[in-house]
Structure formats: structure tokens, C-alpha cells
């Protein structure tokens, strides 16, 4: 009896240990404190800043979990109250590297970091997600997420992130390159420019119907081919030098990667809201 009780207790402990490893390897809010093991499912939503309700967190977890299961790429969201001394990019990279995110030997995945103070966000990509999430995809994702964050709609930002991740990963699985949806506003702006240009061209063509114009010059009445120069001097006065900073490349994992402090190559983009 005593023997079978010890066996049962050992079995329960073993099962609990396995569950802890497989289901909820909980990361730490500090980007550098925890060690990691790749390919172990990590909680995809870590709301340290408390932006989300329990129901919202659960819903986003479900969405991101399905992506992980379907496409073998980690997708995660983390919110923090501050970044400490790090930039949003460094924080996101370190958090990703040090908390066990990423699937496969190249630790493929994508993570959205949202900071409360300063109001910044960053999307970091790694492994094959570095290639899957092209510059255009990251730019589009930043645009949509930032629009939600500006209105303090954190839940909306997370669902936008999850939705675009699903779209990009789904397209990649089907062999399609992600193309951001066309903006109707841009089409109307182009058509308005075409309309204005058509009006200008028509007005110019109409003006040719009147060719009685006043002359302002008398060049054709100058004898001997025009002017005879008697003096010509080019006097150097002064020089002025201006300098403008070369714009830094922002966003986009397509070819604009960087190496994190953990030694991994990351891509992505972000900004402030």
C-alpha cells in the first residue's frame, strides 16, 4: 500500500513537472533574467502593464496559440510599464531571446512589445519570420498597430497584430508574398491629381487658340549677332555649407536586420504612439 502510494505520488509529480514544461513556461518581465529553451510553448501573452482584461488576454492567447500550432512560428505580445535603460528594440530582442520564444533551430517567431512609459512599441522578428515578415509587412503592421495604440486601444492593437500575423503566415504557407491592402484614399488622390493635370493640359491647349501675344523683347532686331562683351568678371564672394542627417533605416525585416545582445539576428520595426 505504502509502495503504491509512493509510486502514485511520484507519477503525479512527474506529470505536473511535464505540464509545467510543456504548457506554461512563464517568462519574466525582465528582458534578461530568465534562461530559455527553444520549442517549448511559452505563454504568448504577457500583460505586465495590465492593459488587457482576463477575457481579452485569453482571447488573444487563443489566436496566437492557433498560429503557433498551424504555422510553427511563435507569435507573442508583451506589455511592460517601462523599458528601463533599454530602447524598445533592445528590450523586445532581449525579451524574445531570453524568455524561450521561437520555434525550431532558428527560433522562428515574432513578438510585439508595448511600453506604457515611454509610449513606444516594437515588433521583433527572428529566424524564418525574419524573411517571412518583409519590410512592407512590418511597415503595414506598424501602421495599423500604431493607429490603435494612439487611441489607447491596446486590445485592438493586439488583435490587429494577431490578424496581420495570420494573414502573412497564411500567405507564406500558400506560397504568396504578402501585399498590404490598397488604400482607396491613395487612389482618389491620384485621380484628383490626374483631374487637375487634365484641366491644366486642356487650359494650355485652349490658350493656343489665341496667338496674339505682346512681345517683351527685341532680340531679332540686334545687328551683328547680338552683344559684344567688353568686360566679364566672375567674383567669388563666399561659401556656405549645410548638412542634413542621413535618415536612419526604420522598420522592415527584409534585409535590414541587426544582431541582438544575445547574438541572434532580428528584424522588425516600431515607433512611438
Amino acid at each position: 500500500m505504502k509502495r503504491s502510494f509512493i509510486l502514485a505520488a511520484a507519477l503525479i509529480m512527474l506529470m505536473l513537472g511535464a505540464m509545467q514544461c510543456c504548457v506554461c513556461a512563464a517568462p519574466s518581465p525582465s528582458p534578461s533574467s530568465a534562461s530559455s529553451v527553444s520549442s517549448i510553448a511559452v505563454n504568448p501573452v504577457n500583460d505586465y502593464a495590465g492593459f488587457l482584461t482576463r477575457e481579452q488576454s485569453r482571447e488573444i492567447e487563443d489566436m496566437l496559440g492557433r498560429l503557433r500550432d498551424t504555422y510553427a512560428a511563435d507569435t507573442a505580445v508583451v506589455t511592460v510599464k517601462s523599458l528601463g535603460a533599454l530602447s524598445a528594440e533592445q528590450y523586445a530582442d532581449d525579451y524574445y531571446d531570453n524568455n524561450g520564444f521561437g520555434i525550431g533551430s532558428d527560433s522562428s517567431g515574432i513578438l510585439l512589445l508595448i511600453s506604457e512609459e515611454p509610449r513606444r512599441y516594437h515588433i521583433t522578428t527572428c529566424g524564418k519570420c525574419f524573411d517571412i515578415f518583409s519590410g512592407r509587412a512590418i511597415d503595414y503592421m506598424c501602421e495599423r498597430v500604431e493607429a490603435r495604440l494612439r487611441n489607447d486601444d491596446y486590445y485592438g492593437a493586439c488583435t490587429e497584430f494577431a490578424g496581420i500575423c495570420a494573414e502573412v503566415l497564411g500567405g507564406y504557407a500558400e506560397g504568396r508574398e504578402f501585399k498590404p491592402p490598397k488604400s482607396i484614399g491613395v487612389l482618389f488622390a491620384l485621380l484628383a491629381a490626374a483631374l487637375i493635370l487634365a484641366v491644366i493640359i486642356t487650359a494650355a491647349a485652349r490658350s493656343t487658340m489665341n496667338n496674339a501675344k505682346r512681345q517683351t523683347h527685341a532680340d531679332r532686331y540686334a545687328e551683328g549677332g547680338g552683344i559684344k562683351l567688353s568686360d566679364s568678371r566672375d567674383i567669388f564672394l563666399y561659401s556656405s555649407v549645410t548638412r542634413t542627417p542621413i535618415p536612419k533605416q526604420t522598420g522592415g525585416s527584409g534585409g535590414h536586420g541587426h544582431v541582438s545582445s544575445g547574438g541572434r539576428v532580428h528584424g522588425g520595426g516600431g515607433g512611438s504612439y
Partner: peptide, 27 residues
């Protein structure tokens, strides 16, 4: 010209002085 951080533009300013003569007939 440029370096790793900035684009530079140097503008040299000149005064161009010209004098001459011409003949105009039957304007």
C-alpha cells in the same frame, strides 16, 4: 558629399559682372 552620418552641400556664391554693347535697328 556625404559621410556616414550627414549629407553636406557647399554652395559657392559669385557675383557675375558683364558689360558690352549692341546695335538695334528697326525696332
Amino acid at each position: 558629399w556625404s559621410d556616414s552620418r550627414y549629407n553636406y552641400t557647399r554652395t559657392d556664391h559669385y557675383m557675375l559682372y558683364r558689360s558690352g554693347s549692341a546695335v538695334f535697328r528697326n525696332v
